[in-house]
Amino acid sequence: MTTPSDQQLIEFVQREARLIDQHRFEEWLELFTDDGMYWMPLEWGQTDPKLTTSLMYEDKLLLTIRVERLKGNRTFSQKPKSRCHHLLQTSQIDRRDEANNEYVTWTPMHYVETRFDEQQLYAAWVTHTLTVKDGALRIKLKRVDLVNCDAAFGNIQLFM
């Protein structure tokens, strides 16, 4: 692949969510470029990830720590493990910048995370900034804007 079709962008976003739902986290990590970032803002319409606090602003190293931790023998907050479920709307293609090899999609979603008898429902918009590397789509930035980003949450342990 050199230039992804709109359909390929849509399918990539759907597959990304599926890998998380199926706990295929190593495969999921591989979807990110080496300098890829996962960003979950704390503020409505946040523009600065560093001098404004975020819920998450993590590079591949920090995401890898999370993935390794989820598998850990002494990760007591994952005994029993959390499970999650993504319900995505069809992604809209916000920008196709073929000259710069950058594609932006916008995907409203509902995300459910559950552990023990508790089930939490979150609503968010996900913005993927994607690029083609070595013939495959990769994530440069995944931004998750929760509709209630500034609410007081309990634990959110997996990935939206």
Binding site: Y57, L62, N155, I156
Partner: peptide
Amino acid sequence: LMYNRLINAPTSV
């Protein structure tokens, strides 16, 4: 702020 989100956030391990 990095300390805060890594240690004190509802998303903090």
